[in-house]
């Protein structure tokens, strides 16, 4: 409990405050918004991969579903954005429920199957025969509800809640039982942990997080195409950020996003063609030399990070 309070004070409060206040000092608000999106997505990956060991390679599927669920609720049902946001998140959770049978698969198979599932959703959404429902490949325009200030504010709230969830998972009994499943599901089950229920819950929370931020993303950018919100780079970035910092920690994914997405925006503006190369080599180096990420390294050096 005490550790939870400490983690909140060290990570959640300052990060949320920074996200809320920085727009007053720095004018490229969209860059800040993208930071928030990746902070949330990296923590979402952390919830499912860090605490259960299942790598959601197709995590973007939930993000895109959230974005489309939100947009279609606005277009067809004329709902208020905040209500539509709930519907978008519900759509993502529904998709996650549909995909729960994938948990029967082990490591790499789960990753590939979830990747395929994200592609499948994208193919359905962008199919021209569904033009009347999803606008097919022709894209979404939500100019009638465009409101960058409010949607930015909602994104900050989602960030705070998501960080709160990881603090809870790290310090609670529930998080502990999840990690015991990850390390050895058989002994966890023998110790009385309801393996299937705990894992499904983590999966749904993770999908909910991605669905919510996907909906806000759609609200904030307001004009987009299916390939915008189903781009594989969302999954890839979120996973790499989380891995770099170290999963199953609170600060790991945060460090990953701030450091790597920061570099991305610096290199991305001066020498973008080398970016993918640097990223690829970085991933390889991580796996070979630093499989646990940065946070365990810092801890080994005696720096106590949450």
């Amino acid at each position: 409990m005490l550790r939870g309070v400490r983690d909140s004070l060290v990570v959640v409060v300052p990060l949320t405050a920074a996200a809320a206040l920085l727009p007053f000092a720095y004018s490229n608000e969209l860059l800040l918004f993208n930071f928030i999106v990746f902070l949330v997505l990296a923590q979402g990956v952390n919830v499912i991969y860090g605490f259960t060991g299942y790598l959601p390679f197709g995590y973007v599927g939930f993000f895109g579903t959230g974005a489309y669920g939100f947009s279609l609720a606005v277009i067809h049902l004329h709902l208020f954005p905040l209500v539509a946001l709930g519907l978008g998140a519900a759509a993502a959770v529904l998709l996650a429920l549909l995909l729960t049978p994938l948990f029967r698969l082990s490591g790499a198979y789960f990753a590939i199957a979830s990747f395929a599932a994200a592609f499948a959703v994208y193919e359905v959404v962008s199919n021209p025969h569904l033009d009347a429902i999803t606008k097919g490949p022709y894209g979404i325009s939500l100019s009638q509800i465009y409101n960058p200030q409010l949607s930015y504010g909602v994104a900050v709230v989602i960030l705070a809640v998501t960080l709160g969830v990881t603090v809870y998972l790290k310090n609670s009994r529930f998080g502990l039982s999840l990690r015991s499943i990850r390390d050895d599901s058989l002994s966890a089950a023998m110790a009385g942990v309801n393996v299937v229920r705990a894992r499904t819950l983590a999966w749904l929370i993770s999908a909910l997080i991605a669905g919510l931020i996907g909906g806000v993303f759609a609200w904030y950018v307001s004009v987009f195409y299916p390939e915008t919100v189903f781009g594989a780079e969302f999954s890839v970035f979120a996973i790499v950020f989380a891995l770099f910092g170290g999963v199953a920690t609170v600060s790991g994914p945060v460090l990953g996003v701030i450091f790597l997405y920061g570099i991305y925006n610096v290199i991305g503006i001066s020498a973008p063609q080398y970016f993918q190369l640097i990223y690829g080599l970085l991933i390889m180096g991580l796996v070979l030399f630093l499989p646990g990420g940065v946070v365990p390294l810092l801890r080994r050096w005696g720096i106590d990070v949450p």
Binding site: G107, A111, L277, Y279, G280, L281, L282, I283, V287
Partner: peptide
């Protein structure tokens, strides 16, 4: 899986 993904990107 992750290592060869990085390799693929490079």
């Amino acid at each position: 899986f992750i290592l060869f993904f990085g390799f693929s990107q490079a």
